[in-house]
């Protein structure tokens, strides 16, 4: 049951969308989605790491001995994460200040290692790139969506490129619970619930 190339890409956007369907990599999902901007920044950083590590793992899959494959994957992932960290410090320092420790923590994000182990080490280059892009974009969209829900209800704004835009008007009473960590769990659970309802046949 080989999937077509389009299916490899599209599956990451709904069927296997990481935080909701695979329920993987929740730590950054819950921690950084206080604003839309943070969510998108984190998502883009993870996508870059995911695509690059998938490419390299897929290219080296015949060279890497199976006994030390996890160590090799971690070296590859850690390298790209450090690249992201340095580049973000150099070109988007305010975003780096906000995401802080969660950028280096992409190394231990189970989505990245999971895709390397479960997909890229068994599939060819093209499929691995498509898989990485699909899952990465799915992850970014989930973070952006969760960030949008939390920010819109929690502080009544949507932040893009450093400028919060007032959406809800002055009389809106912010539901600040959603900005706190428990609010992230509740919002994630409700969104998962809605997705399951929509997907039910």
């Amino acid at each position: 049951m080989a999937k077509t190339l389009t299916q490899e890409f599209v599956k990451g956007l709904w069927d296997e969308i990481p935080p909701f369907r695979l329920v993987l990599g929740l730590c950054p999902v819950l921690a950084v989605t206080k604003t839309v901007e943070n969510g998108i920044g984190m998502g883009v950083a993870t996508t870059f790491v995911l695509v690059c590590s998938n490419i390299l793992v897929s290219m080296l899959r015949k060279v890497i001995p199976s006994k030390v494959r996890i160590a090799c994957f971690i070296i590859i992932i850690a390298t790209f994460v450090t690249v992201v960290e340095l580049v973000m410090q150099a070109f988007a320092y305010p975003l780096f200040l906000k995401l802080g420790i969660f950028i280096p923590l992409i190394v231990v994000n189970c989505i990245v290692l999971g895709r390397a182990e479960a997909f890229a080490s068994k599939n060819n280059l093209l499929r691995s790139i498509l898989d990485g892009m699909g899952i990465g974009i799915g992850f970014t969209l989930s973070l952006a969506a969760l960030g949008a829900v939390r920010e819109l209800l929690g502080s009544g704004t949507l932040t893009f490129w450093e400028t919060p835009i007032q959406i809800m008007g002055p009389s809106f009473q912010p539901f600040t619970f959603l900005i706190e960590a428990p609010g992230a769990f509740v919002a994630l659970g409700l969104m998962l619930c809605i997705m399951n309802l929509l997907g039910k046949k």
Binding site: A71, I75, T79, L86, A90
Partner: peptide, 25 residues
């Protein structure tokens, strides 16, 4: 061999990126 080569390449890559971005950072 594989682990050594991987580590060396990764170290080299990171060192060059770091020295290029250091001033900007």
């Amino acid at each position: 061999v594989v682990l050594t080569v991987l580590s060396c390449v990764s170290g080299g890559l990171l060192a060059s990126i770091k020295s290029n971005t250091e001033e900007r950072i």
